[in-house]
């Protein structure tokens, strides 16, 4: 029942191509711009390859921001995934009074405006000496990752049959054994997906970093990148290189994950 390719189909294809250009062009500009000499960057007709922008970027101390971001995000992701997995296991396997209320409250955390928390948290952090500290920002990033991590892991855990736990228990396996030998191996894909999303959330976070990390040695990548603006002249070559360094890890993590997960995540996450 193949219809011929009509003019309407041609219009739809044209729209799709235009949409792809719109979606991809800015990203292409980042990567091509970052390896262009400044002379050709400002001259659309020409292109000359160079690593100079990256050299200049890292000479100006950008490596420190990169290191901070990696350390802070990894610590926060480890903590939030661990805490969420423990809590999700309990919520998945045990009848608790007030379970629905608890889940509702955690979901509310996902919607809660961070901007409302910034001012009071800053005051508390300042009094506790947690501003400009790894502990303070790791705490924040752990907390912002927990609500959706918990929900995602709860979905994965609910799909692991309870009978497996019960069979292991009847065989004399205690809770630590069940967690290690039954649950953990089956939960690995869920843990990887959850941790990836948490990493991306922390990697791109700007507001808390801006408010709580004011010392240059403590700043993260997004802050380092934003610092290129605001001066009188913007070093666009360095901005492109910094943008590429900030985007590449996110893109490399996101593409494979999203490729497999789009339908499942959106359907499950949205229709809770």
């Amino acid at each position: 029942m193949k219809r011929p390719f009509g003019w309407l189909d041609a219009v739809l294809v044209a729209i799709a191509l235009a949409a792809m250009l719109f979606l991809l062009y800015p990203a292409v500009v980042i990567f091509t711009g970052s390896v262009q000499t400044s002379a050709t960057l400002f001259d659309p007709g020409r292109f000359a390859f160079t690593w100079d922008n990256y050299v200049r970027l890292f000479d100006s101390g950008f490596g420190r921001f990169l290191g901070n971001s990696v350390a802070i995000c990894l610590a926060a992701v480890f903590l939030s995934t661990l805490l969420s997995a423990m809590a999700a296991y309990v919520l998945s396997r045990r009848r608790l009074r007030g379970r629905r209320l608890l889940l509702g409250a955690i979901l509310a955390g996902q919607l809660f405006p961070w901007i409302v928390l910034v001012t009071p948290l800053f005051i508390l952090f300042a009094r506790l000496g947690l501003t400009n500290s790894y502990a303070g920002i790791v705490f924040c990033y752990t907390a912002i990752s927990i609500p959706f991590s918990l929900y995602m892991l709860l979905g994965y855990l609910d799909s692991i049959p309870r009978e497996l736990d019960e069979a292991a228990a009847i065989d004399g396996c205690g809770l630590p054994g069940i967690l290690r030998h039954v649950i953990a191996p089956l939960l690995v894909p869920g843990l990887v997906a959850t941790a990836t999303y948490a990493f991306l959330l922390c990697w791109t976070e700007y507001l808390f970093a801006l408010a709580f990390l004011t010392r240059a040695g403590m700043k993260t990548l997004p802050l380092g990148l934003a610092a290129f603006f605001g001066e009188n002249t913007t070093d666009w070559g360095a901005v492109m290189a910094a943008s590429a360094v900030t985007t590449l890890p996110a893109l490399l993590l996101f593409l494979p994950l999203q490729w497999r997960m789009t339908s499942g995540l959106a359907a499950g996450g949205v229709k809770q």
């Binding site: 191509l17 979606l23 997004p222 996101f254």
Partner: peptide
Amino acid sequence: AKLRTPLRLALIVPWATPAIVAVATWRW
């Protein structure tokens, strides 16, 4: 037209782009 996969791929790219990078690039 076999554009389904390329279009989905194109959709993931802006999503993975951090907000600060999106702003920097568009300002450029």
